[in-house]
Design a binder for these strands. Structure first.
Lengths: 116, 116
DNA sequence: ATCGCCTATCGTCGTTTCGCGATATGTAAC
DNA sequence: GTTACATATCGCGAAACGACGATAGGCGAT
């Protein structure tokens, strides 16, 4: 299901799942981690701790949240743990945004006609 | 140089802004409100309260958060207040997701899709 | 087996969020 | 003026979040 034709219609308790996904992105430290993973060619472990500048336990928590949300994947590689972005994990969120943006242009009935 | 708060150094402040945007979507009630606004042809006011099934004060708070994040806009129309989705507000978040998803395919080095 | 490295989990504390009822504000109508 | 309606704001308690230090576990090297 690529197109979000049904995105507006479903709105069941998928809200909950979507919210978890969005909430995973709703923190600067986690965004930083994702950005780091995005620009890292391979996989990284403890380097993340230094990059975000927080305590190791705190970073581990953020990693756990991201993993629980399905945004990242962790694979145990003998020396350390290899973290990488999970492909397609954000697709539902992308579809949501697309739907909302499309509807925004359509429902722009009472928005102030001032354009910047 | 007066240094314009942030330049190309890093996405220090950008992360914050992006996080606020994502956090605005990171709640079931707020998602419900946005879905409702997306589905509504015109603009709605107090109907939102009944739709989400929460107290009027609670809904007002969620609306305030969404408005603060720039996701929705409210225009005072004498009898009530007209709320509508703000066009293009989620564009930065969409760009983020696109970037992450693109990088996910690229950095998928240690993921073993077939094996487990 | 012991050491050192890396990661996960635990316990705690302060802050923030969430939900509510009650109350204040503003405007249209009377 | 008052009344009625719709929204915003104000406490307030309960829950969740974010951060930390300390601790426990797995694995390679010694």
């Amino acid at each position: 299901m690529r197109m979000g034709t049904d995105t507006v219609l479903m709105t069941a308790r998928d809200d909950e799942r979507l919210a978890v996904l969005a909430k995973a992105l709703g923190h600067p430290a986690r965004l930083k981690i994702l950005m780091l993973l995005a620009r890292t060619p391979g996989c990284i472990g403890g380097d993340i701790v230094e990059a975000v500048g927080l305590a190791q336990s705190t970073v581990s928590e953020h990693l756990r949240i991201l993993k629980a949300a399905g945004v990242i994947e962790g694979q145990i590689d003998p020396p350390r743990i290899c973290y990488a972005l999970a492909p397609g994990a954000l697709a539902p969120l992308a579809a949501l945004i697309e739907t909302l943006d499309a509807a925004a242009s359509d429902t722009a009935c009472c928005v102030t006609p001032d354009q910047d």
